[in-house]
């Protein structure tokens, strides 16, 4: 998919969630039920959109002009470019991650977009990576990868952290 395809496709569509996510499907999760890490994954489930969630893309394109920087004593020209960003306008059924996702700004980088870091609590944060895929039946699917960081040891000063990546899916609407 070309860069323009991603930018055009994502902003020219409305999306709806069908509630599908890897966290809701045991076959995608590497931890057995009695593994403490499975509990950390399961605890995050209410952050994922259920079915009945609609998403509109609110896009913004800014042109950044050419500028010069000093590079080892020589001026170097940085060419003008367009910064493409968007936010999500989320409606429909409520879920725990709605406020955070609504506040996030996504920056388009090539054929994907990446969110600003979302701090959910003093011990939990997530970054969202957005890609578009075309399913075997020809329908376009938005795949959102949530890259989690969860500090699981709450002893003051501890930095023991658990990382996890889970996906949730949206379909083009209608």
């Amino acid at each position: 998919m070309s860069v323009n395809d991603f930018w055009m496709d994502i902003q020219n569509s409305e999306w709806h969630s069908v509630g599908g996510s890897t966290v809701r499907n045991k076959q995608f999760n590497p931890f057995s039920d009695d593994d403490w890490r499975a509990g950390l994954v399961r605890d995050n489930e209410p952050y994922y959109p259920p079915s009945g969630v609609h998403i509109k893309i609110k896009s913004q394109e800014e042109t950044r002009g050419e500028y010069s920087v000093d590079h080892h004593g020589k001026p170097e020209q940085v060419p003008a470019t367009k910064l493409r960003t968007f936010t999500l306008e989320i409606s429909g059924d409520d879920f725990l991650g709605k406020e955070a996702l609504s506040a996030a700004r996504f920056l388009v980088v090539g054929d994907h977009a990446i969110s600003s870091p979302l701090t959910l609590s003093s011990t939990k944060s997530v970054v969202v990576l957005v890609r578009l895929y075309t399913a075997s039946d020809g329908k376009q699917v938005m795949v959102n990868e949530l890259i989690w960081s969860v500090q699981y040891d709450k002893t003051p000063g501890s930095t023991k952290t658990f990382y996890d990546i889970q996906k949730w899916f949206c379909c083009r609407y209608p």
Binding site: D43, L120, S121, S122, T123
Partner: peptide, 14 residues
């Protein structure tokens, strides 16, 4: 009953 709660700016609990 939720799995976790943010109690305030510095503490979240199970």
């Amino acid at each position: 009953v939720q799995n976790n709660y943010n109690l305030n700016a510095v503490t979240s609990v199970s």
